[in-house]
Design a protein around this nucleic acid. Structure first.
Lengths: 190, 190
DNA sequence: CGCAACCTATCTATCGATAGACAGACAAAA
DNA sequence: TTTTGTCTGTCTATCGATAGATAGGTTGCG
């Protein structure tokens, strides 16, 4: 047994990510986590000294992986509408995966109970998303002012997070789909 | 001491509402709650046998009070835009009040840990809001189809919940304001 | 050897919930 | 009028479960 350090650390992060997306940061338990990956809770502390360390590592990686995927989208196509559709698909996939949420969306709801290092990562995730959306929007609206793009990008991010939150609350993914459609109809998203 | 039953029950609900809006349902503790209202935790169980009972009572009242306020808005003015602004103001007020959230919004994030009776109330709150929004929209767009109105109402509700969630996550109420402005600019809201 | 990875065992704190006691209010019975 | 009994609201004390965290031991590889 006893894979290399990074193997087990990796397994812990995968399990933790799934738990947080389903139940939130507060519901993340070292004992449950340990059970899932086949070690003891004390050993989880070996890889992540405190819960805050684990949470921050999770959020940081979540942002990094998201950024990498989004960059890939931008590089794949010049079609802003296509990029936007793929973007909405990301958040849909979380719902489709056992009614889960965006890691940073669910953490935003728990904000007051988060250690500072985790809170900082939540901010970075939002900024990263808005930054990407601005790039996409600027392709479709090259004449728009910087401030307009900024507000529009924030609005799209917030609207999609909200669609995910509400659809999750009602446990009905079709609410997400219909909401995104309405966003498109009204011109909020491309 | 020992006010009438309803006095203390009321005090518990007020304190519980504030706690849930700030920290979520899971963070609601009978001991903390009891300390705030000046009794012991066992006495809270006298008023609300289980935590689920308290949560469901909270959410039910939240929906009822919201519905009453919204009905008053509808009765006050025929101006759909004005009603919509007041609607957005409600969610803004929660943020202004110590970065709190919509009770049902924050509960949606915790959905999987909610007792069924609480979960049911979350659904009702969303339905109540969408129903009201449809009424407002139908005043402004009398020719729209029922399905369009439905989707548009859901979209507005989700977008505003999302704006609240994201602004809270960034602890910056100006994000809410700018997001709502963008919703108006793009034509999502009136 | 010596370090990496994981273990056992335990600590303190907090959770929702329950049992059982008690003080005060109030109404019916004597 | 006084006594008795019941109900309400609160209390103390405690239960079992679970939380994050730590100290110190064991195992195995290089």
């Amino acid at each position: 047994m006893a894979r290399t350090k990074n193997d087990m650390r990796e397994a812990v992060m995968v399990a933790a990510k799934a738990t947080v997306q389903a139940h939130g940061y507060n519901a993340l338990s070292f004992r449950e986590l340990a059970k899932e990956v086949g070690i003891k809770s004390a050993s989880v502390h070996y890889h992540f000294p405190t819960k805050g360390d684990l949470g921050a590592a999770l959020a940081r990686r979540y942002t990094e992986e998201g950024a990498a995927y989004l960059a890939e989208l931008l590089a794949t196509s010049n079609d802003a509408s296509w990029c936007m559709e793929r973007y909405a698909d990301i958040f849909r996939a979380a719902l489709a995966n056992d009614n889960r949420m965006c890691l940073c969306g669910i953490m935003s709801a728990e904000l007051d109970d988060l250690p500072p290092e985790v809170r900082a990562e939540v901010d970075k995730f939002a900024a990263m998303n808005v930054g990407w959306l601005i790039k996409v929007l600027s392709r479709a609206k090259p004449s728009a002012s910087e401030q307009d793009l900024q507000e529009h990008g924030m609005a799209i991010f917030a609207a999609i997070e909200g669609a995910q939150l509400v659809a999750r609350g009602c446990q009905d993914i079709s609410i997400y789909d219909r909401t995104i459609r309405a966003y498109r109809t009204t011109g909020l998203i491309l």
